[in-house]
Design a protein around this nucleic acid. Structure first.
Length: 785
RNA sequence: GGCCCGGUAGGCUAAUGGUAGACCGCCUCGUUUACACCGAGAUGGCGGAGGUUCGAUUCCUCCUCGGGCCACCA
């Protein structure tokens, strides 16, 4: 065999080569003819320039499973990108230096689509470099024509089933993005604020009522005052009218149990709309709302026109103070709901919106969640908590340029809702005229687009549509991170239930996030790690090795040391394999007549390790699989077994040599296969270099997962014997170290009679590995020669 | 305020109702027919209080600290 004078392992060169090979050979192409298919509902990342380290982390973890499963059965592992919605708009605005608001919808959409197609290739390259073994030919974008068609089709399906309705209702509104949003898009943020106690007047009474608020700018929107029916202080005012300070409107004082006498001054003002409590209160008492802010968050009331909410707040407060209507002001910090995409404080605004009915099915969604196996289990709780805490139906309409249009027209005359035919999809109502079938008048196209989750929640359908809908629900696995349980996981469960009355997947695997020194990574903190740089410096295998280091569901701190460890492992694998095959030139692949005892023990232990790793992977415990491999590979295989058989493969003859060759060849192959899901590049390179000729299967990743075929009933005895052997070996090594001698210094060993008898079949190996000239009976001792 | 996760060697982390196991680092020593991206060895640890138990790092309760989710946002 040609001995290449390779100085070590050149990961850049190897990884590029292997990557090309996989691509050329279509190694990971989905084969629909396979009977048992393991289907993965791959998360579609949002195109955002480059892959970030969090992607590298979680996609590696999915890929461990995909590669593991592929060694048992067919794997459906599609790829997709989620590029519809605000993040994409932002990206395009940034890259192209445009403002979506300054363009027509059609022009902006064109620009978005163009930008996406420009960015898409490089973006997906990141995943390929990482060695993600998806079938990239099965690839969707949530904005492409096919996805638009499917998304609209299922919208129509739900509408026809009566699960979608349109309503004008005060909804969560982002004044910055100028769109309605869903409950799932809320985030908490701490803000400093002023908590002021104001004097409300009373009609026909000299007294004033103290009311505390952080939002004086909503005074003109005040429509009622609540006091608790049993609050002795204010009971007598119920039924009377109060006068709003500064703005003068008279509002009713209403008894309502929701007014907590302990909170603030015990009196509560109801405004349209300060929070969702106001929304509820106004509905319950059928009050007439007074809307005082516009969609862009500017005031519309006299004296304050055009002021932003916060400016108005400041000015109203100043004027109140000037008028002596403020009795107390405290500086406080409180958490308010903000939009997760822009961090802007959300408001409530009554606008017509489209909703999917979910509130009436909370119990059903809990049931559905119970049918899915959650890994790790406790993540299930997060789902339940979210579902139990839901307060609104799912608002799926967004007032944005870029997105999948709601496929709807509305008759101006009779309000009839007009839907397109399925064959017309995808359709943009703004580009197509429709007439009302009832009154034959032109209908008004819906201008809003769908919430991006309304499309990504159909990801199983989007992917399956690319292979002729051959993959049915439920999929085998949904891998995703925990931060989108309340959105992606929940909404997908909702859609699968509403459309098909099925679970979307049998199992869900939730991974954690990447942090740096315990802090969440974010661009604003400047503590981001670029996976490209990591890949260049260490390679994909070490990066994946690192990603395999956290137990499932746990966040993982990025530490460069772990990459170094991974790189060492890659190198060690390469060198150990090189050593093995240096001594296998004359190996014919056949088992010897009789295996040497120590070789048998070694293979037994390989089998035990294999069983453990298999169980770990089956339960998505890739970190335990890695740890198990590490332990065995470094200690048992390299430091012990290779040292033990060294002399035998160098100088041994006949079956003795064959036995070690057989054990080395097969043991190493099993080990390589068990770590191949985590470190696909080195293992493939070793396989291609040394094993391909005999093994025939064209890639290690297409081989069958090994079976522990070397294990016999005697395995416990063997393990015991192996332990005895290593115990003695350790003692001898310790003596050598103590004496500051080298490990291969020549010695004479004395061992107790019982041990000699026990290890009878292994004494030659003990001599080899310790370089002992002689082993004699006696008290334990090591004599240096 | 509710719920969830976690507190284990200097750092990061694993297992476990009965002498707590790796990895990185530190210290000592060794090494060239796979590998200095090496080997042999040494050092060093269960947040606090109570309870269950023959025995608790492990199970329970409380406290405390860190992280997350939700609620509160008069």
């Amino acid at each position: 065999m040609a001995k290449e004078k390779k100085k070590g392992y050149d990961f850049l060169e190897v990884e590029a080569k292997i990557r090309n090979m996989w691509q050329k050979e279509k190694t990971f192409k989905f084969d629909p003819s396979k009977k048992k298919v393991y289907s993965i509902d791959t998360p579609p990342p949002t195109i955002s320039g480059n892959m970030h380290i969090g992607h590298a982390f979680s996609y590696s973890q999915q890929d461990f499973i995909a590669r593991f499963r592929r060694m048992f059965q067919g794997v459906f592992y599609p790829f997709g990108t989620d590029d519809n919605g605000l993040p994409t708009e932002r990206l395009v605005e940034r890259l192209k230096k445009v403002k979506s608001t300054g363009m027509s919808r059609a022009a902006f959409i064109d620009l978005c689509l163009k930008t996406i197609s420009e960015e898409r290739g490089t973006f997906i390259d990141g995943w390929k470099q990482l060695g993600i073994s998806a079938d990239y030919d099965i690839c969707y974008s949530t904005i492409d024509e096919n996805s638009r068609r499917i998304s609209q089709k299922y919208f129509i399906d739900l509408y026809k089933k009566g699960e979608i309705y349109k309503d004008e209702f005060p909804t969560l509104w982002c004044p910055e993005c100028q769109t309605a949003i869903a409950q799932a898009e809320l985030e908490d943020k701490e803000f400093p604020s002023k908590f002021s106690t104001l004097k409300f007047g009373l009609v026909g009474n000299e007294k004033t009522l103290p009311i505390a608020t952080t939002r004086p700018e909503l005074l003109p929107a005040c429509v009622a005052i609540f006091v608790h029916p049993e609050d002795e202080r204010f009971k007598s005012f119920v039924g009377k009218k109060a006068v709003v300070p500064l703005f003068g409107q008279e509002v009713s004082i209403i008894a309502d149990k929701s007014a907590d006498p302990e909170k603030g001054t015990g009196i509560l003002m109801i405004c349209s709309y300060g929070d969702k409590f106001d929304v509820d209160a106004i509905q319950r008492h059928t009050l007439v709302p007074r809307i005082v802010f516009d969609k862009d968050g500017t005031a519309t009331y006299k004296g304050y026109e055009g002021l932003k909410i916060k400016e108005a707040r400041k000015k109203v407060l100043e004027n109140l103070e000037k008028a002596g209507l403020v009795t107390e002001t405290k500086d406080i910090t409180h958490a308010v709901n903000v939009h997760d995409k822009c961090g802007c404080e959300i408001e409530f605004l009554p606008t017509p919106q489209w909703f999917i009915k979910i509130i009436d099915k909370k119990k059903k969604f809990i049931d559905q969640g119970n049918k899915i196996k959650w890994y790790p289990e406790y993540m299930h709780k997060r789902y339940d908590n979210w579902v139990n805490g839901l307060e609104w139906d799912w608002n799926i309409s967004r007032s944005r340029h870029f997105g999948i249009p709601l496929p709807v027209w509305e008759c101006k005359e009779c309000g009839e809702i007009i839907l397109p035919e399925e064959k017309e999809l995808p359709i943009d109502p703004l580009q197509t005229e429709k007439k009302c079938p009832k009154c034959n008048k032109p209908a008004k196209p819906e201008e809003m687009v769908l919430d991006t989750w309304a499309t990504s929640s159909l990801s199983p359908k989007l992917a399956s549509s690319l292979v002729g809908d051959k993959i049915d629900l439920p999929y085998s696995l949904r891998p995703q991170a925990h931060d989108i349980i309340r959105t992606w996981a929940f909404y997908t469960i909702v859609r699968a239930h509403l459309h098909e009355n099925k679970m979307p997947w049998e199992e869900i695997m939730i991974s954690g996030n990447v942090s740096l020194k315990g802090e969440k990574m974010s661009k604003s903190k400047g503590n981001v790690i670029d996976p490209k740089e990591v890949l260049e410096k260490y390679g994909a295998d070490p990066l994946r090795f690192w990603a395999a280091g956290s137990t499932l569901g746990n966040d993982l701190d990025y530490m460069e040391e772990d990459l170094i460890t991974g790189k060492k492992t890659v190198n060690k694998l390469w060198n150990a394999s090189k050593f093995v095959f240096m001594n296998l030139e004359d190996f014919n692949g056949k088992a010897p007549k009789k295996l040497e005892k120590i070789d048998e023990i070694f293979l037994t232990k390989v089998g035990i390790t294999l069983e453990k790793i298999t169980r770990h992977f089956e339960k998505y415990e890739y970190s335990k699989a890695r740890a198990e491999f590490d332990q065995f590979f470094w200690k048992d295989f390299c430091d012990n077994y290779l040292e033990i058989v060294k002399k035998r493969v160098y100088h041994g003859e006949g079956d003795k040599r064959k036995s070690s060759q057989y054990a080395l060849y097969n043991g190493l192959l099993v080990l390589l296969k068990t770590i191949a899901p985590i470190m696909p590049f080195v293992t493939e390179e070793i396989y291609q270099t040394y094993y391909l000729k005999k093994e025939k299967i064209k890639s290690i990743h297409l081989c069958d997962w090994p079976k522990p075929e070397f294990m016999e009933q005697k395995r416990l005895d063997q393990v015991y014997l192996g332990q005895e052997f290593t115990g003695v070996l350790e003692q001898i090594r310790k003596e050598k170290t103590k004496a500051q001698k080298s490990m291969n210094s020549e010695v004479k060993i004395s061992l107790e009679k019982s041990i000699i008898e026990e290890l009878a079949a292994l004494l030659d190996d003990l001599k080899d590995v310790t370089n002992a000239k002689e082993i004699v009976e006696g008290d334990f001792g090591v004599e240096f020669l």
